[in-house]
């Protein structure tokens, strides 16, 4: 059984590498809409998939966060991606399967995945 003792070891381990984070003006933000209608439409697995993918690739300059209502119920789950110096991109009708492509193409290679954007859905 896991014990809280293990956390102490984890803390030591983490403290030694805490300072490798990049500064804020380079941070790419991924924001997942998590109001009731987003959650009902499947936002939770989308959020998890982003965290998993960012983690797996060791992307230290990406921050995955949650917000409330983004405002277009019928297009939920909705995800907004903010790359510093570029316009916000809104991805709609998201699911976990679409996440690896967005991470690989947009977040890593800075190429918007146009097919999944709000523009393509409208």
């Amino acid at each position: 059984m896991k014990s809280l003792e293990e956390l102490k070891a984890l803390r030591e381990q983490m403290q030694s590498k805490m300072n490798v984070r990049k500064d804020d003006n380079e941070t790419i933000r991924v924001v997942v809409g998590m109001a009731t209608c987003g959650i009902a439409a499947g936002a939770r697995p989308v959020l998890n998939a982003f965290m998993e993918e960012v983690n797996k690739r060791g992307l230290k300059n990406v921050q995955v966060t949650q917000t409330g209502c983004i405002g277009v119920c019928r297009l939920e789950p909705i995800v907004e991606v903010f790359v510093p110096g570029q316009e916000k991109v809104t991805y709609v009708k998201m699911n976990a399967e679409k996440v690896p492509a967005i991470v690989a193409q947009h977040i890593v290679n800075k190429q918007v995945v146009t097919d999944y954007t709000i523009g393509a859905a409208e």
Binding site: K2, L4, E6, L7, K8, L10, R11, M14, M18, N55
Partner: peptide, 20 residues
């Protein structure tokens, strides 16, 4: 609160902590 007491100022949203 117990986790926070051990982790100090390290955010509980860190992937390593969430995994644990």
């Amino acid at each position: 609160r117990e986790i926070r007491e051990i982790m100090g100022d390290i955010s509980l949203a860190e992937p390593e902590i969430l995994a644990w």
